Simulated scan of single mutants.
Amino acid sequence: MSKIGYARVSTTDQSLDLQVAKLEEIGCDKVFTDMASASNTKRNGFQALLSYLRAGDTLIVTRVDRIARSVLDLQTLVNHLKFNDIQLQALEQPISTDSASGKAFLDMLAVFAEFELNIRKERQLEGIAAAKKAGKYKGRKPISENVKLDIHRLNKKNQPITAIARELNISRNTVYKVLKR
């Protein structure tokens, strides 16, 4: 029965130090960390954590939003933990998955975390729309007709896509888009 901690921040500008210190202070034997959005479920530290956890362990986070940002992700994680006889505990919220009231509160917090994420996305889209309307957000400059001709010329010479992109200093995706049209 080990206490295993998990700490996460969304960007490299933020610090994990406070979360890690709290987790170590309450006696976590090991702490896994990530610097990535919680909506990204392919986080290296998170994947290593899931591989490391064993039956009887308690996974400890400072807050629920450190481990999941959607209700579905959180419920999937909680079900995985429960199936493997692993408890989940949040330090700053009265949550522990070993009781019905703790599970209910956990689900409510997940709803609010997902709501917050969706509101932030909406604001971002509104900001981009306003910037476009004001002429401040114009997107990427289109590639020139000469570059398009060069792509077709090199493609007719059976050059690989990667070689074409490298020679013209453009992305492979751009090469594919031009050839598709």
Score class of each variant (00 low, 15 high):
Lys103Ser: 08
Lys103Ala: 07
Ile67Trp: 08
Arg66Thr: 05
Phe112Ser: 12
Thr76Val: 07
Thr62Val: 15
Lys82Pro: 01
Asp107Ala: 08
Gly102Pro: 05
Glu92Thr: 14
Val71Arg: 15
Lys82Tyr: 05
Ile95Cys: 12
Val78Ala: 14
Thr76Trp: 04
Val61Thr: 10
Phe112Pro: 03
Ile95Glu: 09
Ala110Gly: 15
Thr97Trp: 08
Asp85Leu: 07
Arg63Pro: 00
Leu77Ala: 02
Val78Ile: 15
Ser51Ala: 14
Phe105Asn: 13
Phe83Gln: 14
Lys82Gln: 13
Arg69Ile: 13
Gly102Tyr: 02
Ser99Val: 08
Ala110Ile: 10
Ser99Tyr: 05
Ile95Gln: 13
Lys82Ile: 09
Ile60Asp: 08
Tyr52Arg: 04
Leu59His: 09
Glu92Lys: 15
Arg69Lys: 14
Leu88His: 04
Gly56Met: 07
Leu91His: 03
Asn84Met: 15
Gln89Leu: 14
Thr62Arg: 11
Asp85Trp: 03
Glu92Ser: 15
Asn79Thr: 11
Arg63Ile: 00
Pro94Cys: 00
Ala55Val: 10
Phe83Ser: 13
Leu77Gly: 01
Phe112Trp: 14
Phe105Ile: 13
Ser96Lys: 00
Asp65Phe: 04
Leu53Tyr: 10
Leu53Arg: 09
His80Cys: 04
Ser99Phe: 05
Arg54Leu: 01
Glu92Arg: 15
Lys103Gly: 00
Thr58Asn: 00
Lys82Trp: 04
Asp57Asn: 11
Gly56Glu: 11
Thr76Gly: 06
Ala90Lys: 10
Ile67Ser: 06
Ile86Arg: 03
Ala90Trp: 02
Asp107Met: 04
Leu91Gln: 05
Thr76His: 06
Ile95Ser: 07
Val78Leu: 15
Val64Phe: 06
Ser99Asn: 11
Gln75Met: 14
Ser51Lys: 13
Leu72Lys: 02
Leu81His: 01
Ser99Lys: 08
His80Gln: 13
Gly102Cys: 09
Ser51Phe: 03
Ala110Asn: 11
Arg63Met: 05
Leu72Gln: 02
Ser101His: 15
Ala55Ile: 12
Phe83Leu: 13
Asp73Phe: 07
Gln93Glu: 10
Ser70His: 04
Phe83Pro: 00
Leu88Glu: 06
Leu59Met: 13
Asn84Pro: 12
Ile60Thr: 10
Ala90Asp: 07
Leu77Asp: 02
Glu92Ala: 15
Ile67Thr: 04
Ala104Gly: 02
Leu109Met: 15
Phe83Met: 12
Ala110Val: 09
Ala55Leu: 11
Ala68Gln: 07
Gln75Ser: 06
Lys82Val: 11
Asp98Trp: 04
Asp57Phe: 08
Val111Ser: 12
Leu81Cys: 02
Arg69His: 13
Ile60Cys: 12
Ile95Tyr: 02
Val78Glu: 08
Val64Pro: 01
Asp57Thr: 05
Ala104Ile: 04
Gln75Ala: 04
Asp57Gly: 05
Met108Lys: 14
Leu106Ile: 13
Thr76Phe: 04
Arg63Val: 01
Asn79Ser: 12
Leu77Thr: 01
Ala90His: 05
Leu59Cys: 06
Asp85Ile: 03
Leu74Ile: 04
Thr76Asp: 09
Ala104Trp: 06
Leu77Glu: 02
Arg54Lys: 12
Asp107Phe: 01
Gly56Val: 09
Val64His: 01
Arg54Met: 01
Asp107Lys: 02
Ser70Gly: 02
Gln87Asp: 09
Ala100Ser: 15
Asp73Ala: 08
Leu77Gln: 03
Ile86Ser: 01
Ser99Asp: 10
